[in-house]
């Protein structure tokens, strides 16, 4: 399956990245190359369950507000601030 400009733009929309036409076109080739490398996985078989380890209750974090708390000045970092909050254009309910 080859990447088309259409598909590239769909992916860019999913990833919230704007692309110029030239960028979208160039990406088709580049993504095809990456896909070619990944294709080997399609035929891979007889594989073990992924090993991920595990953590028990004893090793988890205590529910204490004094351990590791580091309050951060959110507003100092924000690009746009109003009424003690970060401001963005109106979000459509979703």
């Amino acid at each position: 399956m080859e990447y088309t400009v259409e598909r590239v733009r769909e992916l860019a929309a999913m990833a919230r990245i704007s692309l110029a036409d030239a960028e979208a076109e160039a990406l088709c080739c580049e993504l095809n190359a990456m896909r070619a490398i990944a294709e080997t996985l399609r035929d891979a078989s007889d594989l073990p369950d992924p090993f991920l380890g595990a953590v028990g209750l004893g090793e988890m974090r205590d529910d204490s507000p004094h351990v590791g708390l580091l309050r951060t000045d959110v507003l100092a970092l924000s690009p746009a601030v109003a009424k003690d909050a970060t401001v963005v254009p109106r979000a459509v309910e979703g």
Binding site: R7, V8, L11, A12, M14, A15, I17, L19, E23, A26, L27, E30, L31, M34, R35, A38
Partner: peptide, 13 residues
């Protein structure tokens, strides 16, 4: 560009 490429591929996968 390099970052975009990998993000788009990672999104597709």
């Amino acid at each position: 560009a390099e970052v975009k490429r990998r993000i788009l591929f990672g999104t597709d996968m």
